[in-house]
């Protein structure tokens, strides 16, 4: 019995399979500059195995406090709509990162408390704590056009007394401008 529809079905299956199995290749790409569009933070609770975001208004914990920095970047060219093959980079790049206390803590309000924090570098097999001053080099890597970038900073030398605390994170850009964000005022116990 002839089945005239069998051959087209098999052919389309074959072509579909080939189509799915051949990855898209990029013959050319462009370097697309991005600029930081928004910056914000949210407190972290790191008492368990991994840090989790604390809801706004919740109390934190002195020995397991940190905050997550969220950065969003957009193309410098507002008409650009993204391309799978393109490379993205920040422009201007971040050259410095510092954390300041806005409440009485380790030197009073306004003191640079960067040394009391560590940046969590997740780029390798193992997480690595690095100095906040070295985090700028990590933050400029692996930018993506559409996704929000996240960077964790953990307080490793907490204050001895519980109370209200607030921090400001400042990013210094290559053109000497600064971008900053202030954490929510949080009660650490």
């Amino acid at each position: 019995m002839k089945k005239p529809y069998l051959f087209p079905i098999l052919l389309s299956l074959l072509l579909t399979t080939i189509g799915f199995s051949c990855p898209e290749e990029c013959e050319s790409y462009d370097d697309v500059p991005l600029r930081i569009d928004s910056i914000s933070t949210q407190a972290l609770d790191n008492r368990a195995d991994k840090p989790v975001l604390l809801p706004s208004g919740a109390e934190g914990f002195l020995n397991a406090y940190g905050f997550r920095l969220f950065l969003n970047a957009v193309a410098a060219d507002s008409l650009y709509d993204g391309d799978f093959c393109d490379n993205y980079y920040l422009s201007p790049i971040i050259t410095g990162c510092h954390i300041y206390s806005l409440t009485p803590f380790a030197g009073g309000p306004g003191a640079d408390v960067s040394a009391l924090f560590r940046y969590v570098d997740q780029s390798g097999y193992l997480p690595r704590y690095t100095a906040v001053s070295e985090s700028a080099a990590q933050i400029v890597q692996d930018w993506n056009f559409t996704s929000l970038q996240r960077f964790d900073f953990l307080l490793v030398q907490p204050p001895a007394v519980e109370g209200w605390y607030q921090f400001e994170l400042r990013l210094t850009m290559q053109d000497s401008t600064e971008i900053s964000t202030v954490t929510d005022l949080i009660y650490l116990k």
Binding site: R47, L126, P127
Partner: peptide, 17 residues
């Protein structure tokens, strides 16, 4: 093998390879 060793209730963390 790698291991991440995290102290509870703390930001203290060690890595073992």
């Amino acid at each position: 093998a790698y291991a991440v060793i995290k102290q509870p209730d703390s930001n203290a963390l060690s890595t073992l390879s």
